[in-house]
Structure formats: structure tokens, C-alpha cells
């Protein structure tokens, strides 16, 4: 295999799933490229990716704030009303002496998801205004370290499991936060799973090259 120089390697991509080397080809707007070996999606092309992602990130952050302020689940048990919010769940773990679990939960369901959305908003804003060459790089690196540790989606499924377990104890009311968290999780899964970081790196390169030409 012959290469003009190291940067020509940007025309190649290694599949995440099966580690096969694939060559990148320009594809139609709205379509996606799949691995030649296992059929896993390698990259997608969407000309409005940055604007869409920015809008979704802002929407996601709003839903995240709503999800943390209002009660998640409310319960009538033996005549008294009990409710939980996401922060309350974490603090109750810390209060009962489970510092390690509490801290872990705080990071996995609160700090990391919040970080991802704040980073995304800054990142996509910078890419829209075509500024901040160094900062976008740092943000992308940070994002790739944080993303595998964000577990808002798993927390949401846990709530469903907990509700089923609690049916025997008393009347359950689903709070505003539950719906807000559901919307947040849908956006979170879309952003972290369908927008690949390598696509953003390629977009960043394209924007930088355009800037150099002008």
C-alpha cells in the first residue's frame, strides 16, 4: 500500500466492530457508509449535522435541567406521600453511608451526562462560527473520554424496573421529570450513538482547511 504522506490516512477508516480497514468515499447527503466486512455503519454524511446537533444539544440540556428539578416518581405509601428527584436519589445514598456508590452514581447519571451536553453546545457553537482550533481539539478529546461513562439511558431503564418492583407497595404517580428524562435520554442516545466522533473530527478538518484557503 502506497501513501503520498501521513495525512492521506484520513481517507481511511478502521471499523470499530471488526477492525477492518476501509477506504472512505464521498457519499450522498443523508446516506451512510457501511463496513465492507461486517456491515457496521462507519460514517454518515449530513450537510446540516452541526446545526442539528447544536439544536439538539440545547434541547437536551433544557430537558436535563427539567429532569433534575421536578419529582421523578411519586408514591402514596401508608398514607404518606414520598417522591424522589435525581439529586435526591444520589444524596440519599451518600446520607446512608454509601459514599462510593453515591459518588459513582453522581458521576454516571449526573456529572458526565451534563458534561457531554455542555461540551457539545460549546463545540458545535465553535464549529458554527468557525473559531477555536485548539479548544475544539481539546473538547473532542475530553468528549471521547467522557462518553463511555455516561449512563443516563441505563438509569432510565432502572427507573422502569424500580417502578415494576414497587407496584406491590402502593400507588405510584409518574412525575414531570420522568417525561423530561425520557426526552433527554432519546436525545442523548441519538447524539452519542449516531453522531460519531470521527465525523466531527473530519468536519473540523474541513472547516480548518476552508479557513486556510480564504
Amino acid at each position: 500500500m502506497k501513501l503520498e504522506n501521513e495525512d492521506a490516512l484520513d481517507n481511511f477508516i478502521i471499523c470499530h466492530k471488526c477492525y477492518t480497514l476501509n477506504e472512505e468515499h464521498p457519499i450522498k447527503d443523508g446516506s451512510s457508509a457501511r463496513c465492507s466486512e461486517c456491515g457496521n455503519v462507519l460514517y454518515q454524511y449530513d450537510s446540516r449535522l452541526i446545526t442539528n446537533a447544536l439544536a439538539l444539544s440545547i434541547a437536551g440540556l433544557i430537558f436535563f435541567i427539567l429532569a433534575n428539578v421536578f419529582p421523578l416518581v411519586q408514591m402514596d405509601i401508608l398514607g404518606s406521600e414520598q417522591f424522589i428527584t435525581i439529586p435526591k436519589t444520589i444524596f440519599s445514598l451518600l446520607d446512608s453511608g454509601f459514599y462510593l456508590v453515591g459518588l459513582l452514581c453522581a458521576f454516571l447519571v449526573f456529572i458526565f451526562p451534563l458534561m457531554i451536553f455542555v461540551i457539545n453546545i460549546i463545540l458545535f457553537t465553535l464549529l458554527t462560527i468557525k473559531r477555536g482550533e485548539k479548544l475544539t481539539k481539546e473538547l473532542l478529546i475530553l468528549l471521547s473520554h467522557v462518553t463511555p461513562w455516561s449512563m443516563a439511558d441505563i438509569f432510565f431503564i432502572s427507573i422502569l424496573v424500580a417502578i415494576v418492583k414497587l407496584v406491590a407497595f402502593g400507588q405510584i404517580h409518574i412525575g414531570i421529570s420522568f417525561w423530561a428524562l425520557m426526552a433527554f435520554v432519546v436525545i442523548d442516545v441519538y447524539i452519542t450513538k449516531s453522531i460519531r466522533l470521527s465525523e466531527i473530527w473530519m468536519l473540523r478538518k474541513k472547516i480548518l482547511l476552508e479557513g486556510e484557503r480564504q
Partner: peptide, 25 residues
């Protein structure tokens, strides 16, 4: 996804802590 059980326990423990009925981790 193995974290599910931890989260479920955290939710149950936070929601049910009355003097007569209590769930603890």
C-alpha cells in the same frame, strides 16, 4: 448495563424510607 441493579437499589432506597417500611442498600 450491569449498573442497572445498583441504580434500582438507589431508587428504591431513596423512595421508601418511612419509619414502618424502609428499604436500605
Amino acid at each position: 448495563w450491569s449498573m442497572i441493579d445498583i441504580f434500582v437499589v438507589a431508587i428504591l432506597a431513596a423512595l421508601i424510607h418511612l419509619s414502618s417500611i424502609e428499604i436500605l442498600a
